[in-house]
């Protein structure tokens, strides 16, 4: 009995110990601050939920929230659109070329985000090289506005985020058994159908990982929107303004909590759609059989 009890205890203990390093790191650096922010958000002058009411009802704040999620979503979409083909090509490279390819993907990280955002500000400016070239070549008559309307912001953010999309997808693609597309080919699938039947579905989990990283990181971008966002503010700038300049900590905290909740909702929906599609898949198979 004693030995058995001991065994169970040690099992639980082992599980706990495995979790301990993460818990040790997350408790003081994530959960505790989150708790403080949560408490702060209910301490406004207009009662416990006053700040939340303001976040939901204030048209200005709602626009900023919408803008933030819209930008993050578009950046995720374009990063995938650009990142997937890059990852696909990299996955087919071998030996030295693969190393060089990955080195090139990470090369931009040698310069800080501030510098790269600033570079894009110059590149995309009214009199920047991009507009000069296009006007000079007669492609357009008037310089295109990139900076104020969010287009330049999305270009710069996509540029920064593409590597974060490439790496997980590259790993996902490399993990696919070479015999699988080969088997599809033998069974009669042309290269495009091989991709649709095998490569794409099997790289879906890595796409989800890449999209998650890019989306969440994009929600929190601060420097790039500050430089390229113009008057189209995102929520991180709004929070910083409320906390640092206006010292309205309850509203800043409420905003942070709302963003967190919205992010959770987005991922819950994503997860749900995955579960649903899997269920649909097996239902289809059942019907087929």
């Amino acid at each position: 009995m004693l030995v058995e009890g001991n065994g169970i205890l040690s099992m639980k203990l082992r599980k706990f110990l495995l979790f301990a390093p993460t818990a040790l790191l997350l408790t003081p650096f994530f959960l505790a601050p989150l708790f403080v922010i949560g408490a702060e958000s209910f301490s406004g002058k207009q009662g416990a939920f006053g700040e939340y009411v303001k976040v939901v009802t204030d048209p200005g704040i709602r626009t900023v929230l919408y803008n933030t999620f819209y930008v993050a979503l578009m950046v995720t979409f374009f990063s995938l659109l650009i990142g997937y083909p890059i990852a696909y090509v990299l996955a087919r490279l071998k030996g030295r070329w693969a190393t060089i390819g990955i080195f090139l993907i990470f090369l931009p990280f040698w310069a800080s985000t501030v510098i790269r955002s600033f570079a894009w500000m110059i590149l995309l400016g009214r009199n920047g090289p991009v507009n000069s070239a296009m006007v000079g070549s007669g492609l357009i008559d008037e310089p295109i506005r990139f900076i104020d309307n969010g287009v330049g912001l999305m270009i710069a953010m996509t540029y920064i985020m593409v590597p974060f999309m490439v790496v997980p997808i590259l790993n996902g693609l490399r993990a696919i058994d070479v015999n699988l597309p080969r088997a599809a080919a033998v069974l009669g699938a042309n290269p495009w159908r091989q991709f649709l039947a095998v490569t794409l579905p099997l790289s879906m989990p890595s796409i989800a990982v890449g999209a998650t990283i890019v989306f969440v990181t994009s929600l929190g971008f601060f420097v790039t929107p500050s430089l390229l966002g113009g008057n189209r503010t995102v929520v991180s700038i709004l929070i910083s303004e409320q906390a640092n300049r206006l010292l309205n900590w309850p509203l800043a905290s409420a905003l942070a909590i709302v963003v967190l909740l919205l992010t959770i909702v987005v991922f819950a929906l994503l997860r749900l759609s995955q579960v649903m599609s899997r269920r649909r898949g097996s239902a289809r198979a059942g019907a087929l059989a």
Partner: peptide, 14 residues
Amino acid sequence: FQNYALFPHLTVAQ
């Protein structure tokens, strides 16, 4: 194939 190369995301019937 040696490792069968069955599509892991599809059912037997699929």
